[in-house]
Amino acid sequence: MMDTADLSTLLETLCPMFVMVDSAGEIVNAGPTVQKLRPDEPMKGRAFLDIFELVRPRTVTTIPALLSLAGGKVHLRFHDEPRTALKGLIAPLPDGDGAIINLSFGISILDAVRDYALTSADFSGTDLAIELLYLVEAKSAAMEASRSLNLRLQGAMLAAEEQAVTDMLTGLKNRRAMDMVLGHLISSGSAFALMHLDLDFFKSVNDRLGHAAGDFVLQQAARIMEEETRNDDTVARIGGDEFVIIFKGLVDEGVLSDIAVRLINRLRQPMMFQGAPCQISASVGTALSTQFKTPDAAELLNAADQALYEAKRQGRSRHCLYSALVEAGFRTASSQ
């Protein structure tokens, strides 16, 4: 007949969550997985009811009552934290001197795996918990892959949306972005100024030094415009060497003229490209939304454009306000 030691060795392989108790309720041996739940408190030699609290059946409160449940099931939990819930199946020893209680986690297995860092090695090879763990791991891997894919898709969408409103050469906003900003400001009734800036002598840089030099000049001009404007302002490249700056909430013509003069002065400074100077200047025209009873994007752009060409007509490298044209008797076709 198999002795207790041999039986314990066999149970450790087949039922790593067993607890063997004698007739007095003292733990004779405990499976490796059960002991792993309380690694700092050896269970062997301790009273079963000092470690575990019987929950159901409610009538079972003593060791004799527990041992009488041959083939019966019990629900129990640890006295201390974490108070993991367990299920147990009672199997009396053949000599009647105690019983083997085979434990399982039941529906609390996922919490147990998390709380105790359990792996498949902690369960019997035929335990359905192993397959559940594999399913959980597969689900977790699938969810992580799905989250990663979603993040990549969101990143790609954001990048595509950003590219759709960005001038790729200069990093400024493009014409589409300018239209969106104008539409928002007009619909919200916000006051703003629209400055149209054109680079003078840009074509001669392209013709003399090539398109690489022209691209360099555009990038440097974009940097200067960003440095001379606020974070709330919108700087957009709307054509080859044409730019629009929208100043939200700024309609003071004196301040706008000062900004235009700073831009002109900085842009007329030679830009060195591969040792060769690139000499340009800028002509600027500015219109205010407050100059129109019902501002319209096309009307404002036309007004700033007319002011720009008046600046060019006067000799370039100048700034002209649309209000000066109005005072001189000029009207855009849409405002007549």
Rank of each mutant, 00 (worst) to 15 (best):
A145D: 03
H184Y: 09
R147G: 00
A159C: 04
R175C: 10
D198Q: 02
L158I: 02
L182K: 12
A160D: 07
G155P: 01
Q163I: 02
G183C: 08
S146Y: 04
N150F: 04
G183M: 08
A156N: 06
G183K: 06
Q154N: 14
L158K: 10
L169E: 08
S148E: 03
E162H: 12
S146Q: 13
A164V: 10
E161Y: 01
L185P: 05
Q154W: 01
Q154K: 15
A160H: 05
V165R: 12
A142G: 00
R147S: 02
K173N: 10
R152H: 02
T170D: 07
R147W: 00
A193E: 01
E144L: 14
H196A: 12
M168P: 00
R176L: 14
R147V: 02
A138E: 07
V165Y: 03
S140M: 09
V181K: 09
Q154L: 13
L182N: 12
M180S: 15
A159G: 04
E144R: 14
M157N: 13
A164K: 08
I186P: 03
A159I: 03
L153Y: 05
M180G: 06
A145C: 00
S190H: 14
I186F: 05
R152D: 06
H196G: 02
H184I: 11
L194C: 11
T166R: 10
M143T: 11
S188G: 12
A156P: 00
E161W: 00
M178P: 03
N174Y: 05
A160Y: 01
T166Y: 04
A164S: 15
A138V: 01
H196R: 14
S190E: 15
R176V: 13
R152C: 01
V181D: 08
H196Y: 15
L158Y: 01
M195V: 09
S188L: 08
V181A: 14
L194M: 11
L194D: 04
L182W: 12
A156H: 03
S148K: 04
M195R: 03
L172N: 03
E144W: 00
Q154E: 13
L149R: 14
H196E: 05
D179A: 09
L182G: 11
G171M: 11
A160T: 09
A177I: 04
E161L: 09
S187Q: 14
N150G: 01
L185F: 13
L153F: 02
E161G: 03
L197F: 02
R176E: 07
T170C: 11
L158A: 13
E144K: 12
M195A: 11
K139A: 10
N174D: 07
T166V: 07
N174L: 06
K173C: 14
V181H: 09
S140A: 10
M195S: 10
D198H: 01
A138D: 10
A156F: 00
L182D: 12
L149I: 05
S190M: 11
V165N: 03
G183Q: 09
S148L: 03
S140T: 10
M178T: 08
